[in-house]
């Protein structure tokens, strides 16, 4: 299989944080959602991928090439970060002129179409934009230079549901071409629950799981039961649980559950929450 993105044992050491052996691969034509709580290492991973920070170990392949050796691959990689990175003094028109001399395959017509679609005025200075507009401008730039791989870091957070839906629309349009792939990090799992083919879940710098979203969602479920009932289950069936005055809710692995328990569908949020904050049965670590 051809991969749009491959990480093998990516490492980055900080004083109080280590990105620890992150390995994942995103097949061409697919969308991978990168989830985890704030500070879990999502931005660090993306920054290391594009070369904004240096890595302390491991390998990175974007569209089959190593961006630390050859920057030319970045012609085909579109990047949107959570904070805007364009000069506030400039307007979209000036930005377009500059971009045409930075990216070889810059498409001014495409850029114009995106701005029209986003209803962003040519002459308006970037410092007068709302957060949603800044994100849309970043997306427009990322999509107007012939990118095949789109990397988004928290691009939808802090935006209202309507703008978020617009952005999902744009991503769906982008992947209508099966050569195109998307890697997006978010702590808003509702967006990823719709669009992502794959989910990678990072916690405290470590990748806890990577896999097809449908498999992940169908292999976990929520069980409401009593404390005693919970104790009867095998420890490795329960990924995490929370107690309340009236009983216990547990995230369980469906395929390990004995037949007649009523197990509800779990959302990505549930999986995230119970794995990170839920108590564990017996003395198991992580999963």
């Amino acid at each position: 299989m051809e991969y749009a993105l491959e990480l093998r044992g990516l490492r980055k050491n900080y004083h109080h944080f280590t990105l620890d052996n992150v390995s994942l691969s995103l097949p061409k034509g697919c969308i991978m959602g990168f989830i985890g709580e704030n500070g879990a290492g999502k931005s660090t991973t993306i920054k290391a991928m594009v070369g904004l920070i240096s890595k302390d170990g491991g390998e990175i392949r974007l569209l089959g090439q190593d961006p630390t050796l050859d920057r030319s691959v970045m012609e085909q990689v579109g990047l949107v970060l959570d904070s805007g990175f364009f000069p506030p003094e400039m307007n979209a028109k000036q930005l377009g002129v500059s971009m045409a001399r930075i990216y070889q395959r810059w498409d001014p017509e495409e850029f114009r179409r995106f701005l029209e679609r986003f209803q962003i005025a040519w002459e308006k200075k970037i410092k007068e934009y709302s957060r949603g507009m800044v994100m849309k401008l970043s997306l427009a730039v990322a999509l107007s230079h012939g990118a095949k791989l789109l990397l988004l870091d928290e691009a939808t957070s802090g935006l209202d549901p309507i703008v978020r839906d617009d952005i999902l629309d744009i991503l769906y349009d982008f992947i209508q071409d099966e050569e195109h792939s998307v890697f997006l990090s978010s702590h808003i799992t509702a967006d990823l629950e719709k669009i992502a083919d794959y989910i990678a879940f990072i916690h405290r710098g470590k990748l806890l799981m990577v896999g097809e979203k449908d498999d992940l969602l169908s292999s976990y479920g929520l069980l409401h039961c009593t404390r005693d009932q919970l104790e009867e289950l095998a420890p490795d069936t329960v990924a995490g649980y929370r107690t309340s005055e009236f009983g216990v809710t547990a995230l369980v692995k469906r395929y390990r559950m004995p037949g007649d328990y009523p197990v509800e569908n779990a959302s990505l949020d549930d999986i995230l929450l119970y794995c990170v904050k839920g108590k564990k049965l017996a003395s198991q670590e992580g999963f």
């Binding site: 034509g29 697919c30 209508q176 719709k194 083919d197």
Partner: peptide, 19 residues
């Protein structure tokens, strides 16, 4: 409809429509 279009219209992932 193509798998990718159906995914867009139904707001689900491509891998699901593909399956």
């Amino acid at each position: 409809p193509s798998m990718r279009l159906l995914a867009k219209e139904l707001r689900i992932s491509v891998i699901t429509t593909k399956r």
